[in-house]
């Protein structure tokens, strides 16, 4: 009987793992450098295995894993300073393969700038934007991951958007004061 339980737990875990791994991996890789992301992914699934009975069925499993991953990433973040994080994220910015060289240059500048702007946000604001724009979660799902009420999430999204726009505008002004940014002059 116990053997049956174990097999059942293993099958359940395999299902959750196979279905959710890509998204959990991306979640961690978006927030941590490669080596730490690998650790965070493994730690998240170790928790899932140990608590397989607590992992909800269906689509809710992914949100449960995001919540675990959110905490795991938080542990990793506490051991690193913000500067390293920004550096990591800036170097992780993908090139837009569909864009031409000029557009890519402009895009890179803007993307780098928006990441710098995002890094000026407090972590709560930045995380809600990541969940919204990168994980493509809706308000209720974000509330589930962050363990907040949906209304609180709405407020946080609203605040984060304003903060991001404000910081972005400020950085644009600062960059223009310094002179043309390579790649930016082509369209401005």
């Amino acid at each position: 009987m116990r053997e049956d339980d174990r097999s059942l737990a293993e099958r359940r875990f395999e299902m959750v793992y196979d279905r959710c791994y890509p998204r959990v991996a991306a979640f961690c890789q978006r927030r941590l450098p490669a080596d730490q992301a690998d650790d965070a992914i493994a730690e998240t699934f170790v928790v899932a295995w140990r608590r397989i009975d607590d992992v909800p069925e269906g689509a809710a499993a992914l949100l449960w894993l995001y919540r675990v991953a959110h905490r795991t990433v938080g542990h990793h973040w506490r051991s690193r300073d913000r500067r390293t994080r920004l550096h990591t994220r800036l170097h992780a910015v993908p090139e837009d393969v569909t864009a031409g060289p000029e557009e890519t240059a402009v895009s890179s500048v803007e993307v780098e700038r928006v990441l710098r702007a995002a890094d000026r946000l407090n972590d709560n604001d930045a995380e809600v934007l990541r969940l919204l724009c990168w994980e493509h979660l809706d308000r209720d799902e974000i509330a589930e991951v962050l363990e907040l009420t949906p209304n609180a999430v709405s407020q946080r999204i609203h605040r984060a958007r304003r903060h991001l726009a404000k910081e972005l505008a400020r950085l644009e002004r600062e960059d223009h004061r310094r002179g043309p940014v390579p790649g930016e002059g082509a369209t401005s």
């Binding site: 910015v93 990441l115 934007l129 724009c133 958007r161």
Partner: peptide, 13 residues
């Protein structure tokens, strides 16, 4: 615009 740029900045799309 800021949000659109942020979405494009997704390091693992």
């Amino acid at each position: 615009r800021a949000l659109r740029h942020f979405e494009r900045a997704n390091p693992v799309p």
